[in-house]
């Protein structure tokens, strides 16, 4: 197995070395990456989209269809994980005589140090503020929907690790859980439909000056939906893998 793997790796490496030998050097301002559509985005992106962070502009306005399908992909991943039997099976809650004893045992199994508990509880609001700031100022500084989704998701996972399963499950309101998980695809579809009615193109953004506020609103709605939906999906993936099998 090992010799086969080494041989395969060598063949792949040789092929790729031949491949990169034919590539133009990177970092060259006149390379093909920088002279075709990328140059147009850099020159006209701010005027056309009103977004100063061009990564966000490409993500939502120019390449919105990719992002739509990508949001659907992570939603599908969550559905796939939840569809596996162990993710949804909950252990029956202990009752009667042995309940107190078994709860104490569960407490002893993974005790959280009070220091770690306090520090995570102190830091969590700051992490949340950082995530919200990167969402709110995502058009002028590095940041945006996906970044703040990743940060909020990581914060929820840290809280879940420290506070335990039951408390972490309460971070996502139970009644709204299904809607929050599907928030990304649903809102993307709604905005795409609005764009279709306005411009005649699916996921189209109105380009004229008069529709500036509307275009801004569409981008903001998409960013918030990606951030909230993505964070909830990341937290749910953690909860599903954390469930006892």
């Amino acid at each position: 197995m090992r010799t086969f793997a080494l041989a395969l790796v060598l063949v792949v490496a040789a092929t790729m070395v031949i491949g990169i030998a034919g590539l133009p050097p990177h970092g060259d301002p006149d390379g093909p990456v920088h002279t075709h559509v990328g140059a147009r985005y850099l020159e006209q992106g701010v005027a056309e989209t009103g977004l100063r962070n061009l990564v966000t502009a490409v993500l939502l306005v120019y390449r919105g269809f990719d992002t739509f399908l990508e949001v659907v992909v992570i939603f599908t991943a969550l559905v796939a994980v939840l569809a596996l039997p162990s993710a949804t099976r909950q252990p029956p809650p202990p009752r009667g005589e042995g309940a107190a004893a078994s709860r104490r045992e569960a407490d002893d199994a993974v005790p959280v140090s009070p220091v770690v508990f306090l520090v995570v509880r102190l830091l969590a609001p700051f992490i949340a503020v950082f995530a919200l700031a990167s969402l709110y100022r995502g058009h002028v500084t590095p940041g945006g929907g996906f970044q703040s989704a990743a940060i909020i998701g990581a914060m929820m996972i840290a809280l879940g690790l420290v506070f335990g399963r039951e408390h972490a499950a309460r971070l996502v309101p139970h009644g709204a859980k299904a809607w929050l998980q599907a928030l990304g695809p649903l809102v993307f579809a709604a905005v795409a439909f609005v764009g279709w009615r306005l411009t005649g193109a699916f996921l189209g953004f109105p380009a004229d000056e008069a529709a500036y506020a509307l275009r801004e609103a569409m981008v903001v709605v998409l960013e918030v939906a990606i951030a909230v939906g993505g964070a909830v999906i990341l937290a749910q993936l953690f909860m599903a893998l954390d469930a006892p099998s």
Partner: peptide
């Protein structure tokens, strides 16, 4: 401030896990 708060906490958690 973040480094001064989080560094010792991490070390504490690690040492505690090693102890346990």
């Amino acid at each position: 401030i973040l480094v001064v708060v989080s560094g010792p906490t991490t070390a504490h958690a690690l040492a505690r896990a090693a102890m346990r």
